[in-house]
């Protein structure tokens, strides 16, 4: 049984009691977002990683890189796979097993917002022969609300943190040294007959090539409850809200998108308050990300 049972039975009343006094159950004012902490490069086995905490909500994002043959229709484009996993440890309500609907939605959310900013041609080593395949996975390990913003920021931070080795294809095998590592990529023989050929490449041990991501989405989410707007909702607040609205900005501060998935209608004046609050918060959020 989840801890806050009273909230479970009279959840709206519980929250309303606090909001009527302009304060939230965790002591924040309605316009205060939780502190965001981002640590990058913490996972050495990943080419890029970020651990993000938004209050108690915690997400761990990592990027794994493999060298593969490009897809036939896109010989000079790399490949990016994105996944979000909601681990059972993150909440008493998450069960193990196949991905829940929520995880699938978050995966698509993350993928659609991150992919457009990755230049796939940068991931090409040699057109038609060898490209990078990146796998970005974001794990939510603690859900205290506003997962959408947390996983997007963690994903962006991890991708910005990615550093790839330099790779060149060589004709024959060479001895591995301290600075280089041999990579053999088995190619698929189209006719499916005979021995599969391999491409032998050498990769530097040092990783210095970033993805040079020049722009990325910065999200700020709000929920609406009883005619009031709350920034950066906690999990209890999310469960009783009337609607949710997310603003997406560019690092320059321009608004590039608004998401409002269903829910009660939002009157114009509340929409404007949200936008104003969001614009105020963006520079701080951006600074946090740029500091990594």
């Amino acid at each position: 049984m989840d801890q806050e049972v009273f909230q479970k039975v009279h959840p709206r009343e519980y929250l309303a009691r606090f909001l009527n006094k302009d304060v939230r159950p965790d002591g924040r004012s309605l316009t205060k977002a939780r502190r965001v902490n981002i640590t990058v490069s913490s996972i050495a086995t990943a080419v890029g990683s970020a651990m993000l905490k938004m209050g108690k909500t915690t997400a761990v994002a990592g990027v794994h890189a493999t060298l593969v043959q490009p897809a036939p229709g896109a010989p000079d484009q790399g490949i990016l796979d994105v996944a979000v996993e909601l681990l059972p440890m993150a909440s008493p309500n998450y069960k193990s097993g196949r991905s829940s609907e929520e995880a699938i939605c978050l995966t698509e959310y993350l993928r659609s917002l991150i992919s457009p900013h990755i230049n796939m041609s940068k991931l090409c080593v040699e057109a038609g022969l060898l490209v990078w395949q990146l796998r970005l996975t974001v794990y939510c390990v603690d859900n205290d609300g506003n997962l959408e913003d947390a996983i997007l920021l963690a994903g962006v931070a991890a991708m910005r943190n990615v550093l790839l080795p330099s790779v060149r294809i060589i004709g024959e095998e060479v001895d591995e040294g301290r600075d280089a590592q041999m990579v053999e990529v088995k190619t698929e023989n189209e006719e499916g007959e005979g021995e599969a050929e391999s491409i032998i490449a050498v990769a530097t041990v040092e990783r210095t090539n970033s993805l040079e991501i020049d722009t990325y989405p910065l999200p700020i989410s709000f929920i609406l409850f009883d005619g009031k707007v709350l920034i950066d909702p906690s999990v209890a607040e999310e469960s009783v809200c009337d609607s949710r609205i997310t603003f997406l900005f560019r690092p320059t501060g321009e608004l590039r998108g608004v998401l409002k998935p269903g829910g009660k209608n939002v009157p114009e004046n509340l929409y404007q308050s949200c936008l104003t609050m969001a614009k105020e918060r963006i520079p701080k959020l951006q600074a946090k990300l740029e500091a990594t």
Binding site: F18, K21, V23, D26
Partner: peptide
């Protein structure tokens, strides 16, 4: 109610 709410927060903290 205001006091009740503030006291709740203080004790939780």
């Amino acid at each position: 109610t205001e006091h009740t709410v503030l006291l709740s927060i203080a004790i939780a903290k």
